[in-house]
Design a protein around this nucleic acid. Structure first.
Lengths: 233, 233
DNA sequence: TAGTGGTCTAGACCACCCG
DNA sequence: GGGTGGTCTAGACCACTAG
């Protein structure tokens, strides 16, 4: 059987992936170096390099200088999920988007929020609670704290019609953030806003975002029972 | 102010990121083309290309031929989380790992499993329920169905001491999969195995993996209440 | 159809680190 | 020390698509 030359990095990637999946190259095994593969495939070394780097990024290969490239022992599969603006998520589902501001006030942060955001006890913060709905059914509660450094007084008015989620995305750039996923039982507060039973299991996302070490905002999203987030690997 | 030349793609990436974060280049705005940036930075176009492609992969730039490169309107941040072997996850937390096989039997799939896995009603499947624990406290229930095509009879014995989670990772290669995250209220079954109260909110991961269109296994992981999964963006 | 990003090439040098 | 991956370069051609 004669092998045609592989001229682009995607096809090289595919061929290497085949050899891994077919166990021609087994987990932990050393594969030929870039120069040899380039010769075999009839392409430049940089093309092979691009393909192998891409596979290493995906966690399927372990690469080290001098040691060479090995098939990953435990293919560290990474689930990646995009974090869209809530309004877009609801619209993408084909539902009508609704938004209700529940409360909005300037104050000082309670201890757990001050700790989470790394703020002084007397720092100024804005606390906003609102509900996003899909086809008039509550979809998620947005319970957010924003360091007041980032919000001018005029902006407060906006939150009556524009969710802080969306406002922040378009007005305040961030450089890093933490995300946590968990589950909680709906208390009286959540049950009332989501229109669900007391104790129902809700999916929760906690997110804190920063701009160069300065915390901008921390938010808890409490989804209506039944919510699920899908992705592929 | 004189700019020093940026010679590697990481520093170009960093500089571009700076301009985005400082709003010198605002969301939706067109940035200079690769050739111009290369000249400004004093490096080759391919170096700029590498940096910009990397940023586009991260969702911070939108690039289209002829149309040019724009700062993403809504920085589509992607949370990526690695999916480790449960035993390693528990050990990484510094806890002692424990494993208990609850049940293991060959049968035919119930309708919802057959549908999920795309199997015939009379196909052979293996149903395994087991519990992983950390420091003798139940950590997660693994409720798994495996198409019997992938398991020889001898392997059944193994599951007494080795979790199917771990066995599959090291013995059966997969090419793709779906993952879903959700929350459920613990029923009698879950409460008994996890040692939690009836109705407690549990974090759930459903995962189905395939090898070239043939489904290998589907699993539901039901975590003990309080579990949370952390990641960064 | 012209301008932009996408990619390949051949060669080169370097950084790392296993033996 | 020497082999390996990591990266840069300059040039070239191609693919796509907005105007």
């Amino acid at each position: 059987m004669k092998r045609e030359t592989l001229k682009n990095w995607q096809s090289v990637r595919k061929e290497v992936l085949n050899r891994i999946h077919s166990r021609q190259w087994k987990p932990g095994e050393l594969i030929p170096n870039e120069a040899d593969l380039a010769q075999e495939f009839g392409c430049a070394r940089s093309t092979v390099n691009r393909a192998l780097q891409n596979l290493a990024d995906d966690g399927l290969l372990d690469r080290r200088r001098k040691a060479g490239t090995r098939v990953a022992m435990h293919p560290v599969r990474k689930a990646t999920m995009s974090i869209p603006v809530i309004r877009n998520e609801i619209i993408a589902r084909g539902s009508a988007y609704g938004y209700d501001l529940i409360s909005s006030e300037r104050s000082t942060p309670p201890p757990h929020v001050a700790a989470l955001m790394g703020l002084a006890p007397r720092a100024g913060v804005i606390h906003i609670v609102c509900v996003h709905s899909a086809d008039d059914t509550p979809y998620v509660i947005e319970d957010r704290w924003i360091s007041s450094d980032w919000v001018s007084p005029d902006d407060m008015v906006n939150f009556a019609n524009l969710s802080p989620n969306e406002w922040l995305v378009t007005h305040v750039p961030f450089t890093a953030g933490d995300i946590a996923f968990s589950a909680i039982s709906a208390g009286a507060f959540e049950a009332a806003l989501l229109g669900c039973e007391l104790g129902a299991a809700s999916f929760v996302i906690d997110r804190t975002t920063r701009n160069n070490e300065r915390t901008i905002t921390t938010v808890r999203l409490i989804f209506a029972p039944g919510y699920r987030i899908d992705t592929e690997i």
